[in-house]
Structure formats: C-alpha cells, structure tokens
Design a binder for these strands. Sequence first.
RNA 1: GCUGCUGUAGCUCAGUGGUAGAGCACUUCCUUGGUAAGGAAGAGGCCAUGGGUUCAAGUCCCAUCAGCAGCUCCA
Length: 732
Amino acid sequence: MITVKLPDETEKEYPENSSALDVAASIGSRLADATVAAEIDGLIVDAMRPLEEVTETRPIPLRLLTERDPEALGVLRHSCAHVMARAVMKLYPGVNLAFGPTLGQGFYYDFDLERPISEDDFARIESEMKSIIKQKEPFERFSLDRDEALKFCDGMDQSLKVEHIETGLADHHTLSFYRQGEFVDLCRGPHIPDAGKIKAFKLLSVAGSYWKGDAQNRRLQRLYGTAWFSKKDLNKYLNQIEEAKRRDHRVLGKKLGLFTISNDVGQGLCLWQPKGAIVRSLLEDFIKRELLNRGYEPVYSPHIGRAKLYEMSGHFPYYRDSQFTPIFGHDGGQMIDFWIRKLDPKDEDYVEPSADEEQKLLEAAAVMGIDLSAFPKSGSVEDKLQVLRKWQDQQERYLLKPMNCPHHVQIYKSQPRSYRDLPVRLAEFGTVYRHEQSGELNGMLRVRGLTQDDAHLFCTPDQVEEEFRSTLELVQFVLKSVGLEDYRVVLSLRDPDSNKYVGSAENWDRAEATLRHVLTEAGFNFVEEPGEAAFYGPKADFMVRDCLGREWQLGTVQLDYNLPERFELEYIGSDNAAHRPVMIHRAPFGSMERFVGMLIEHFAGAFPLWLAPEQVRILPLSDKHLDYAKQVESQFRSAGFRITVDQHSAKVNAKIRQAQLDLIPYMVIVGAQEEAQGAVSLRDRIDGDLGEMPIDEAISKLKKEVKEKIIRQSFEADFSGIEAASEVSNEY
RNA sequence: GCUGCUGUAGCUCAGUGGUAGAGCACUUCCUUGGUAAGGAAGAGGCCAUGGGUUCAAGUCCCAUCAGCAGCUCCA
C-alpha cells in the first residue's frame, strides 16, 4: 500500500501502482474525468503514472490538475503538438521530427521535411488531427535504456532524435517515450491521459527554424498551433490575436500620422511626425516636471563621443557587433582598425594573417599616408599591435553614443564632489544609437536610434537602498499616470558560472542583496532570473501588462559598481578621505520610441485626452458657421487645447464619421442654434452626443479631464482566462 | 545576421509576356446639412533599384535595398 497526501492535508491509502487517476476516481468519477495531469512534489507528471515511480517522498504529496489549473494547459498543448506531429507524419511520409515544446499560449513542432508546408496545408493537417483526437487513444509512457532507445529511434528513421540522444542527452541512462496509436516520440512528458481531452485547437502559422536554434544547422519547418479545453477559450484567444493585429502600432502610426520610417533616412531610424511628436513631448514634459520635484538635475550631452571613452566604460568592446561603425578622422582609420582586430588573438574571428597579407596592408597604409615605419615585420604580434594601436590612439575616432552613462560620468567628474552633494542625479533624454540586427527592427519597438528617459544617480553606498527605493517609486508613479498598473518586476542577477561580468564577486553579492531586499520590502511582485544581468550590474526590469494582457519590457533600474571603478569616480567623505560612489542607471519609460509604440497599441491609437494629439475637432454644420467655429476654436486654444476646425464641405454626419475614425476624443458641433446661444454641442468619441452647453462649461469639463489625466477606453478586455500559462518544460 | 514571403497612385490592394487598374484620400464644381459615408468631374504612376532573358518585361531570371513573419540577439 502507498499513502497519498492531498493538498487539504488528508492522507489516504492506495494499492501499489495506483495513479493520480486512480486517486481521482476514488474521490469521484467526475473528478477522474476532469483530471488532466498531476503535480507531485512540485513536478508536473502524467495522471496515469504509478505515483511511487515519481517521487521518493512519503507520504506522496499529490495535487490533481484539472482543466481549471493553468498548468494543465501546458500539458494539453504538448499533447496536441504530438497529435499534430502524428498527423504530419501520416500525411507527409519521410518527416524527421525535431523538437515540439509548448509556448506561453500554444505549442510548436519542428519538422525536417523536403516538401514545404504552407498555410494551404493547414486544413488537411487539422482534419487529420481531428480524426486522431476523435479516437481518444491514450498516451502511453514507456522507458528504454540508452542503447535500446538509440536502436529504437534509428529503427523509426528518426535521425535527429538519434543525434539528440547522443549529444544533448548524453548523460541520460534511461529515456522515456510516449506512444499514441502508431505514433511514438522520444519525450519527457507529461501528457494528458487521452487525446479526447483536446477540445479545441488551431494551427496558427508556419515558419522556418534551425535544428537546435543554430543558424549553422539544418533548416527546419516549424508549425505553430494552440490548444484549449474549450471552443470558447480558443475563440477568446483568437479574438485576442485579431485585436492585437488591429492595434499594430505600425499600422496605426501610419494611419494617424504619428511616426514614419523613411528608407532614405535609414533602417530603424524613426521620424516623429507632428502628431507623434506631441505625444512624446507631453510625456517628456510630464516626467521632466516630476524629476525636478524629485531633486534631479537636467543635463545635455552630445550624440557622439570618443571611442576611447566607450572602451574605457567597457561598452565598445562588449557590444561592438551591435554598434555603428566608428567615425574615423583619418581615411585609413578603418583599415588600421580592421588590422588590429585581425591581429588580436583575443578576437573571435582571429586568423593569423599571412606575410603576404601583411605586406599588402603595409603598402595600402603607405598609400594612405599612414606612417608605420616602426612596424616590426618580423616582430611579435604584441609588438605589431602596439605600433598600430599607437597610431590609432593619435587619431580621431568617435562613436555614436550607445549609452549616456559615460557622458554623465564625465559631468560628475567635472568637479570635486563632497558627500554633502550626494546623491547627484543627472537626467537627460539622451538619444543613443545601436546597430540592431536588421531582422530585429520593428516599427518603434526596436529601432537603431532611441531616446532614453535616462538618468544616473551617483550616491554613497549607504544611500543606494534609499535611492533604489525612490527610483522604483518613481517608475510606479509614472506608469500609473498613463494607466499601466499591472506589472511585475524581473530581478536579473548574474550567472555565477560565467565570466562575462565585470567587478568583484563581493560587489555583485552586495548589489543583488540590496535589490532583493528593497523589492521584497516594498512588496513588489518580482521574480529572480539568474544569468540575465547586464555585464556591469544587476537590474530590475518592469514587465508591464497592457490591456490585452501582453507583456512589455519598459522601465529599468540598474545598479552599477563597475563604472565608478573604471572611471575612478570619487567623493570626499566626512572623514576627509576619497571614497567611491555607486551609480544607479534608471529609465522609467525605457525609451520614448518603445514607450510610445507600446502606448499606441495599449490605447489602440485612442489616446486619453491629456495625450491626444488633436484633442477637440470643431465640426461646423455648414460653411455659414465657419466664422463662429473659428471663434470657438480660439477660445479653446487659449484655454490650452489642441483643436482644429473641419472646414470640408461635407455633411455633419460625414465629419463626425471622419473624426471618429481619426480617434478624436471630443467633437464640438456648431450650427445656427449654438451660434445664437453662444454655445456648443459636445460629442464624446465614446459616449456620443452630450448635448448643448455654454462654451465655458465645455472647456472646464475638458480641462478637468486633462488635469486628472483621466483614462477612458471603449475597449473592455476580457482575456482573463488566457493569461500566459506557466510553461511546462516537456522537452528532453 | 539567417530562412521564407512581399515591394504597382498618399493609403489599402487587383493586374494571364503585348496600351497601367479599383476603392478610399486629394482638387474643382454642385449641394449648406443636426450626431458614423450627399452628388458629379478631374488630377495623380521611372510598377523599389540595377542588371539579364525576350521582337516585347509590372509580369520570367539574377543581384541590391527595404518591409513582413519566424529564428538568433538586445547595454
């Protein structure tokens, strides 16, 4: 007999080899029917597996997972991936299976198959899947030892699985498989008891991928799908996808004239059109005022700086690949730079240059007027490098700034600092340039020139905690004022096994402990992610959920014990001795581009009144009322509103329609009636006609809405059921 | 950066190797209106760029640039 302990602490005895399903059945047949998987000792496992096989713990702690538990969705989706793979194999013989894990709200499976799969094939695959599901065949688990498993996969002609067992799973003695009808797959599980549990699914897209995610490897075809316990949930999810498409900031940005990206200017370089620029400057003004209140000092710094500066800070060497090429003062600068990198044995692409190549480079240098007479042709690489570096150091070499911090550091260093001056908080909307991979660029969300609402705090070690706390508070405040109150914080820590980080272990420990302590104390919902820290320090990123439940990484607060060290920053303490300050980098919005892009999607282009580029549009009933309309316009304008008059010769219905489509928050309709009364008729974009009222009344109503930054959205999201389900790790 | 798809009017898109198309927007004229589309006419194009095949290329081929999707990356 075995003893099982349920979440309510009750303990029961069951015969050996009992499964979670048996336990469920003993409680009730409906529960047995609803049980999808089980959680034992924190591990999600098959409901049909003998309990004692899973854990050594006695009594066995068991939690039954039903369709109501989010964890169950991951299990369902992985099983659906198997069903999809089975269907694909049936339809297209010769398929080689790769991996097929679950994702936040779906799953995919990678196939190696000559014949390209297109969306036109989806209907066929789906109907094959349907007939598989109809048979309600069980998922059966069995284990084989290494040799048997290899033979087994080889026998099925699954060479990728064979390769995976030999490489990725080299340290596994036994391997588990799941059988479902004629389909067998190497898989860690868990799976649902039988395919009949898949009540609703849909194939979503097909895309290319690589074996083990490496572009050097063979290309695979990846089929994406999603699965749910009910048709209703599936439809809800599909609606969410549609809604997300409708809100695409690239489409809305074009339609509403917010921003544009011109090929002539360059990839990933965002041009703010007047309407977008207004939104941005309102946000900047808002945060600037807030910063002044909180003891920040605005500064300005140029867009470029000497490459040496960024070599000193560590950014240039570390992020060289994602930087724009340096600006060289000498035409030959780039060639020497190339040479230096080629000679440097530390460089990844290091290939020893041949004597012939070296000779050619020397000749080219001579032609370009570079004096390398000291170059030791038969000397050591180090000696050669020294000559080249010496020449380079004498030249102008600038970088488009990838970060603002080195400039702010220089401002800090421009005068002696006393402990009485600290913390020094230097703030700048600093535009930085990063040469992101072309495939990564995406509207305003991923650009090559971005403006951070940046600031750097220089403080004593004792002040770190308080400064970090108040910074978090600032981010909270800022997000709240644009109606973003649903977020979590990701605390990114270093990976203790990696050597990519700079600074001492003690400093890291101290920094991480401080962040953890403040976040805990302030009651933040946060998770720790080891290995995700920046190379110079741990960071706390704000992951903000928009009204569709999508997460965006926006604001960030980062601790830095490294730059003060590298730049030898100091302040004089009360003991009259020099001490090293600590730096905090922080950007509540992250970047203006990304933040505004996110806001466009969050509001579906319909900004709240205080941010709307065009707040009010006057719609004269006919040309006869144009004069009065202009009079009303000037009254609103002197009250501070962004307002226009629709002067088209169209019926008021058409003007209203246009204003609605342009997402103008308020329309003011004026005709003979209003003119006679010296009044206006107000129409709300969301609630429609508000009736006639005196101009003053309309103005003060709108003023109040602006002042309080009221957010009214016509969109009622109901995606509560489809928050990202926990991802179940079910790959080998 | 890699793979695939795409690039035609300001926007959204049709277009079979043989004369460049539609709807919306725009301009003009008629219409002067009461809470989501009044009517008519007109203007608008180096069919992304550069090569090639062909008697003939928006259409077929190659390259480049850009966009999209996915992969990989993100200070």
